[in-house]
C-alpha cells in the first residue's frame, strides 16, 4: 500500500492561467525537477487514498503521478 505524501510544489502559471508544476520538494527536503507533464486529468488515487487533478509527470526519467487535491499536492509514496 502506498503512502500519501504531501509535498511542496513550485508551479508556473502561463498567460492563459494554466498551471504547470515545475518541481516538487519531498518531506526530507530534497527537490526534484519535473522534466515534463505528460497528462492532466481528474482521477482517484486508489493506492494512496485520495482524489483530485492528476498530473502524470516525468521525474528523473520515470513517470510519477502528482495529485492536486483541494489545494494540496500529494504523491503516492
Amino acid at each position: 500500500m502506498a503512502r500519501k505524501v504531501f509535498v511542496e510544489v513550485t508551479a508556473r502559471f502561463d498567460r492563459e492561467g494554466r498551471m504547470l508544476p515545475l518541481s516538487l520538494t519531498w518531506e526530507d527536503g530534497r527537490t526534484f525537477e519535473i522534466d515534463r507533464v505528460l497528462d492532466v486529468r481528474r482521477a482517484a488515487s486508489l493506492k494512496a487514498g485520495g482524489q483530485g487533478i492528476r498530473y502524470a509527470c516525468r521525474i528523473l526519467g520515470r513517470e510519477r503521478y502528482l495529485f492536486l487535491e483541494e489545494g494540496r499536492w500529494f504523491v503516492e509514496g
Binding site: 500500500m1 486508489l46 493506492k47 487514498g49 485520495g50 482524489q51
Partner: peptide, 12 residues
Amino acid sequence: YYASIECLYNPR
C-alpha cells in the same frame, strides 16, 4: 456512497 468515499480515502 458515504462508505465508498471513506474507503477510498483510507485504503487500510
